[in-house]
């Protein structure tokens, strides 16, 4: 699975993109976030509860219940501020 991070999440995590092998049993965005938080202080800080983190699965906005599968492109980022 390809995971992308943008804006302050990218800075907090320390990388913009990575390829991960999805651990067995993770089937939705909430599960992925819970696992990512265990991967180090940068991840923990980025995904700390109460933080405003948005997600897209295969380039469409997705909520915590959205299903994910190996091969998906999942992105995490703050609320958008373009325009």
């Amino acid at each position: 699975m390809r995971i992308l991070y943008f804006a302050w999440l990218r800075e907090r995590v320390g990388l913009g993109e990575e390829q991960v092998d999805l651990p067995a049993g993770i089937a939705d965005v909430a599960g992925l976030i819970a696992w990512l938080r265990t991967r180090g202080p940068g991840f923990e800080a980025a995904f700390a509860q109460g933080r405003l983190v948005r997600c897209a699965v295969n380039q469409d906005f997705a909520g915590p219940d959205a299903a994910i599968a190996p091969g998906d492109e999942v992105a995490f980022f703050p609320p958008v501020t373009g325009g």
Binding site: A7, A75, F77, P78, P79, V80, T81, G82, G83
Partner: peptide, 24 residues
């Protein structure tokens, strides 16, 4: 566009500090 397009702004201030713009 302001609420659905994935862009993010970071401001650099005259004193050299930087800050991501918060969504309104």
């Amino acid at each position: 566009l302001k609420t659905r397009a994935p862009f993010w702004k970071k401001e650099r201030f005259a004193d050299g500090t930087e800050s991501w713009v918060d969504a309104r």
